[in-house]
């Protein structure tokens, strides 16, 4: 059991997760942002490590990644910053990024370092299931890390079953086939997709991401899943001055009950 499993065991609705890019807007505030988000009521976090060619990301996260790289962020530095993470932050945390930086770092070494820092899971959009299963799953298991798979409206039922089998914390449902930073699709076909997933009675909880930007979209997502992830909208907040102080108001605008 990692922190994610414990969280889902005690709470299974209206979970709010926040994504942000490590090293943006400033190099050294990665853990400060995590702490502020925990205090403001976020249930878990995804910390992105930047990549030069983020093909699944829209302009907002592309920009944050480039800025973070320009600031000097690297995986080595990120793990350095995360050394005292667990002295300050208790909510579950995932790392999110693209496969090439991990391959260069060494997948096994990456998993070890992540576990040492108290990371609970990893999201790597461009790591295929076949390579994960045949080459890397052992490293994830040895380090008690959950690997999170994405599902889109086009993912077949068979594949969703397989993903459910390989997952051990939650499944990331994309609100549409899109890059990050788009609007939430609220068409009938999307409702059908959520209903279809719900009817499958998967063993893993589901969290909806992409296009969640305010209370309305958050509530909508929580009708169909156990929670939702806000990314680009939060990254935009970080462009503002005094962003740390603005985090509580941001979180309560998404999830007012807190």
């Amino acid at each position: 059991m990692n922190r994610l499993n414990k969280l889902f065991a005690t709470k299974n609705n209206n979970l709010l997760s926040i994504y942000y890019t490590a090293g943006y807007p400033e190099l050294d505030t990665t853990v400060d942002i995590a702490l502020a988000l925990e205090k403001a009521g976020a249930d878990f976090l995804e910390i992105g490590f930047p990549y030069s060619d983020p093909v699944a990301d829209g302009p907002t996260i592309q920009h944050s990644s480039q800025q973070a790289l320009d600031n000097g962020m690297t995986l080595n530095l990120l793990f350095e910053q995360l050394k005292d993470l667990r002295k300050r932050v208790t909510i579950p945390i995932l790392l999110m990024g693209y496969v090439n930086p991990i391959v260069q770092f060494g997948v096994e070494r990456f998993c070890k370092k992540a576990a040492e820092a108290g990371i609970d899971g990893v999201i790597v959009p461009d790591l295929p299931m076949y390579e994960y299963e045949t080459l890397y799953a052992g490293f994830f298991k040895d380090n008690n890390l959950s690997n999170i798979f994405l599902v889109t409206p086009q993912t077949s039922a068979d594949r969703i079953r397989k993903i459910d089998e390989l997952s051990n914390s939650f499944i990331y449902l994309l609100s549409s086939s899109s890059i990050t930073g788009g609007n939430l699709d609220v068409s009938d076909s999307i409702e059908d997709y959520y209903k279809r997933i719900k009817a499958m009675q998967l063993k893993n909880p589901t969290i909806i991401g992409f296009g969640i930007a305010d209370n309305a979209t958050f509530k909508k997502a929580c009708e169909y899943a156990n929670g939702a992830i806000v990314g680009s909208k939060f990254v935009k907040l970080l462009e503002q001055e005094n962003y740390l102080n603005k985090i509580p108001a941001f979180i309560s605008s998404i999830k007012p009950s807190l």
Binding site: A56, V99, Q154
Partner: peptide
Amino acid sequence: DQGYYGDFGGAYVPEMLYP
């Protein structure tokens, strides 16, 4: 059959492109 030439190849695409 898996799309590899020795150590190289494969299909490293996000789920959105998988179908």
